[in-house]
């Protein structure tokens, strides 16, 4: 029973065009933002399968970046998230792969993000209708359900102990 609430079906209120390829992905990015306690400085993003094939048309890249910048699913700035990365100091890189070995689903992404001395690798899957799930944090399996009506800052707080300290880059 992945869907638990009437608002998982009617909702989220979101910018288009796709609940699975846009809204659900904003949530994954936003979870990482909350996990790191703010916008990362660096992010390596892998899109798999359907995400890899259609991310441009659905604005999946804008959605993930929007989330990493701390935006919600109905934030009209998502449209311009890519242009806003400079202002927020986020450097990012995308790569595309056929299928995700860690989780079998067409809408999967793995993001490695760094903020200050913290570095984290997070696997997320968008289940449809704006509902998502974090299935991995730093190679450990998880089952963290993300519904847009949840408060991600509270949710993410309990997973902070899983953050590992990365190599301290110069100037940080």
């Amino acid at each position: 029973m992945e869907f638990q609430s009437c608002f998982d079906i009617i909702g989220p209120i979101m910018v288009g065009p796709s609940s699975s390829h846009t809204a659900g992905v904003v949530s994954i990015g936003r979870f990482i933002y909350e996990l790191l306690g703010g916008c990362p400085e660096e992010a390596e993003i892998i899109f798999y399968d359907s995400f890899a094939e259609t991310y441009q048309g659905h604005g999946t890249d804008k959605a993930l970046i929007g989330g990493l910048l701390g935006m919600d699913t109905d934030d009209s700035r998502i449209k311009h998230a890519v242009e806003l990365t400079k202002q927020y100091g986020l450097c990012y890189e995308f790569s595309l792969e056929d299928s995700c070995l860690e989780y079998e689903h067409p809408n999967t992404t793995v993001v490695t993000a760094k903020r200050g001395e913290w570095i984290v690798k997070v696997g997320g899957v968008s289940l449809g209708g704006g509902l998502s799930k974090i299935f991995m944090i730093d190679d450990e399996q998880f089952d963290i359900r993300l519904s847009t009506s949840d408060d991600f800052s509270i949710l993410a707080a309990s997973y902070r102990p899983y953050l590992i300290k990365g190599p301290i880059s110069e100037g940080s």
Binding site: I13, M14, V15, P17, S19, G128, G130
Partner: peptide, 21 residues
Amino acid sequence: ETNARMGVIVATPTAGAAGIL
């Protein structure tokens, strides 16, 4: 059409099918 313009809609149950309800 609003959805395609990246306007604000409500997913019912998804954005791709947001027009019907």
